[in-house]
Design a protein around this nucleic acid. Structure first.
Length: 279
DNA sequence: AGTGTATCCTGCAGGC
DNA sequence: TGCCTGCAGGATACAC
């Protein structure tokens, strides 16, 4: 999906355009995006005012004036597109699932080709419970390499799979997991518990560097991802390994390899990320 | 506690 | 041109 940098970019684009807006109507075009009947959902939204837009992991959070939270998970192809006035002519969204109509004519569209995304209207405590089950925010000022090292703990899971587990660390998906491991010089198949302290320090630094740089570039557009204003993210050109099978490594020219485990592709440089011992 | 597999969907690229 | 297969930024549930 949209991972942390894409969600963050969307949040930053949305914040100035929808905070303070009054919801006249939530129009649900694809009910399977919700986790409740559309009438329920629409009733909870009608007449509310947006008070804040935030992010937790890969989720976009739209806070309402009764402390309810609209939690949007973008899945693989979800988009949140904001329009100052109702778009005319051919729909700018190819697969609109939910349209939020604001007083004054503004429209927020959740568009999702594959419909793996979800839009849920949760109470503050329902959201808190959900958030508590998620791992720490890797970009939090207080998130340290010691936190990462101790969390890796005794897990026998390959570190690439470990990084994708939102209960362990929030916001990392397949693109940035692979990029961070490359920059840290750690093979994606290394067991989490096998990382040395220096490797964990490098991984911590790489994760934060990759995520920050991707945010600065507005995220990675492979195909579907767009910012809240419909722009493409520019980080794709800066990827070192993701999607670059057989292309030369930028550092050592060894061809990048693709392996599959955990039913996802992992990309790495055999020269810069030596195979873990015992394999 | 792990891994592999399937599932939810649609669209696109590549091979023939 | 058309058909078929495989693959995709996610998340979950299941059997083993």
């Amino acid at each position: 999906m949209p991972e942390l940098p894409e969600a963050e970019t969307i949040v930053r684009g949305l914040r100035p355009t929808i905070v303070g807006q009054f919801v006249r109507r939530a129009e649900v075009l694809r009910e399977d995006i919700l986790r409740e009947p559309r009438a329920n959902f629409a009733r909870k939204l009608r007449g509310r005012t947006v008070t804040r837009v935030d992010r937790r992991g890969k989720n976009v959070l739209i806070g309402l004036d009764n402390d309810a939270v609209l939690a949007v998970n973008l899945g693989m192809t979800g988009r949140l597109l904001s329009f100052p006035s109702a778009p005319r002519g051919p729909s700018p969204a190819g697969h609109p699932a939910v349209r939020f109509h604001f007083r004054g004519g503004g429209v927020l569209i959740f568009d999702d080709t594959r419909r793996f995304g979800t839009v849920e209207c949760l109470t503050a405590s329902e959201w808190a419970e959900r958030s508590d089950r998620m791992g720490p925010e890797p970009l939090a000022a207080t998130y340290s390499s010691r936190d990462l090292y101790s969390a890796l703990g005794t897990s026998r899971s390959p570190v690439r799979s470990w990084l994708l587990d939102q209960r362990r660390i929030a916001g990392i998906g397949n693109i940035y997991a692979n990029e961070a491991l490359y920059l840290a010089g750690v093979h994606p198949r290394t067991q989490a518990r096998q990382l040395t302290h220096p490797e964990a320090v490098r991984l911590h630094r790489s994760i934060r560097r990759v995520l920050r740089n991707a945010i600065r570039a507005g995220g990675t557009t492979i195909r579907d991802y767009r910012t809240a204003t419909g722009e493409e993210g520019q980080y794709a050109r800066r990827l070192f390994v993701y999607g670059r099978e057989e292309k030369p490594c930028a550092k050592c020219r060894t061809p990048i390899e693709r392996i599959v485990f955990g039913s996802r592709s992992a990309f790495y440089c055999p020269g810069c990320q030596p195979a873990p011992p015992g394999r």
